[in-house]
């Protein structure tokens, strides 16, 4: 019988369990590495509330992630799992942990290469037109996860999942996925 089944469960314990729940599309990183777990709260009665935030609005993996989180905690003896979704602040790849980025690279996916759109700046009256002006948008310097060369080229803005773009390395000639800045 696990400790949780006997009564209250610790917040740190829940976080460490969640750190073992893999992303369904990219199983080398966990939902915690991905930065989508916003909050964990426990009550004295063996119940637990996990707040998650969606990555892409229509990402089909979100439902799978929600189910995986619930199942993982139930399996470890948490009696009641409540899942909440929070939209704001919006998830960006900046929420991804450094460890997560390193794991992505090891798996052959180039991690996000720059900081994302500063939404708070836009809200304060930033120039929207500048955000879509051709030529004014800096291209990310994407490093090949196989050979480390930054001599790479974008082949498609969209890849096999909403979070990725396709690149190829012009030195080692390998194609690879890039987890885009978002």
């Amino acid at each position: 019988m696990s400790a949780a089944a006997a009564g209250a469960v610790g917040v740190d314990q829940v976080w460490s369990w969640l750190a073992e729940v893999p992303d369904p599309e990219i199983p080398v990183i966990s939902v915690v590495d991905l930065g989508i777990v916003r909050d964990v709260a426990v009550d004295g009665d063996g119940g637990c509330t996990v707040t998650i935030t969606p990555t892409y609005s229509g990402c089909p993996a979100m439902q799978v992630i929600a189910d995986a989180v619930t199942d993982a905690l139930r399996e470890r003896g948490v009696r009641r799992v409540e899942l909440r979704t929070r939209l704001s602040p919006a998830w960006t790849t900046d929420w991804m942990s450094e460890e997560g980025k390193a794991k992505l690279k090891g798996y052959g996916i180039a991690p996000p290469a720059q900081r994302v759109v500063d939404i708070s700046g836009l809200r304060k009256g930033g120039d929207l037109a500048a955000g879509v002006k051709r030529g004014a948008i800096a291209k990310p310097k994407v490093v090949c996860p196989h050979c480390g060369s930054s001599h790479t080229e974008n082949t498609s803005q969209f890849g096999s999942t909403p979070c990725k773009a396709l690149y190829k390395c012009l030195d080692c000639r390998e194609p690879f996925d890039y987890f885009k800045c978002h």
Binding site: P54, Y56, S57, L87, S88, P89, A90, T92, V116, V117, I119, L122, R123, G131, V132, R134, I137, Q157, K180, H182
Partner: peptide, 20 residues
């Protein structure tokens, strides 16, 4: 505001692509 913030990055990406 929350829905717009969530959508803005996606919509930005769409426009950069279609403009291109």
């Amino acid at each position: 505001r929350e829905i717009a913030e969530k959508s803005l990055k996606e919509v930005t990406y769409h426009l950069r692509r279609s403009g291109d």
